[in-house]
Design a protein around this nucleic acid. Structure first.
Lengths: 146, 146
DNA sequence: ATGACTGCAAAATATTTGCATATTC
DNA sequence: GAATATGCAAATATTTTGCAGTCAT
């Protein structure tokens, strides 16, 4: 078995999707993969990467994420309504937004329409399940206070 | 049976929820009720109402909608990610966004977690199901072209 | 008169666009 | 070298905030 570095693997991911493996794209993809749990905002991705790549711009982050979405390498999480958060596509899952701490958690839920192609005659391309409430951690903190 | 006008009914809805039945609130609530299917943006509500109430402001629309949400008279639909759309609360249902025409449709789906209070230890306060794809109407138009 | 509500103006936040420069194959 | 990608600056879009004036009891 031939060993490849992580960067080579990411490069392959981009090229096999017809995308030029630019340094910016590689870094953004790497960031998404290593921060799946955080469901980062564009801001967060930009802030993290501009430290290493001083010329990085918000525009590039937006461009790249939109390109990734078009190629199905990432998906937008629209749960908060006023900002977009991002996720690199792995397995289908739903999201839980904590309304106290604003964290987004992945949750596995057996969805009854996951394998339907149509609902009411509309063609389904994406399914998003969003739960909102108070997360485990915040509930614990609250209990501790009392 | 005593007959009441629609405006009296809306007024009752507001007062029984502890809200002063101001003209603006009545009109916004009426608009929401008569345009449930449209899932209007703040902009749309404002534009429609400012014709009748020239002093109406965006701020008031935002204030009012947030008040309604707090009282559970309306809910925010966060499906597009960059703008909020509104819905007046009736029965629980999911939403379908057409990515061609940008319309939002209500869809009835049997949700397996609708009566669960916790998932992975997180307390669930709201459940939102968002489907995206191409709506019936747009599919028909597309077929017609070929 | 008091407390709540409205609405203007400005600020804050988030995203998109035009275009000149740079990079990749 | 042609096509594509980057990134600055400016424009656009969306939501929030401060505050002064207004309205209903």
């Amino acid at each position: 078995m031939k060993m490849i570095t992580n960067m080579e693997r990411l490069k392959n991911t981009l090229t096999t999707n017809g995308l030029k493996p630019t340094y910016q794209r590689l870094k953004i993809l790497e960031y998404l993969e290593t921060h799946v749990d955080a469901h980062p905002t564009v801001e967060a991705i930009y802030e993290a990467l501009v430290k290493k790549i001083p010329t990085m711009s918000m525009t590039t982050v937006y461009n790249t994420l939109n390109t990734f979405i078009a190629k199905n390498l990432a998906s937008a999480v629209t749960i908060t309504g006023t900002e977009l958060r991002y996720d690199c596509v792995t397995t289908p899952h739903h999201h839980f937004l904590c309304q106290r701490c604003n964290k987004i958690y992945d949750v596995e839920i057996k969805c009854p329409i996951i394998d339907r192609n149509y609902v009411d005659g509309h063609q389904i391309d994406e399914i998003h399940g969003y739960l909102k409430g108070i997360c485990k951690q915040c509930l614990a903190k609250e209990r501790a206070k009392k």
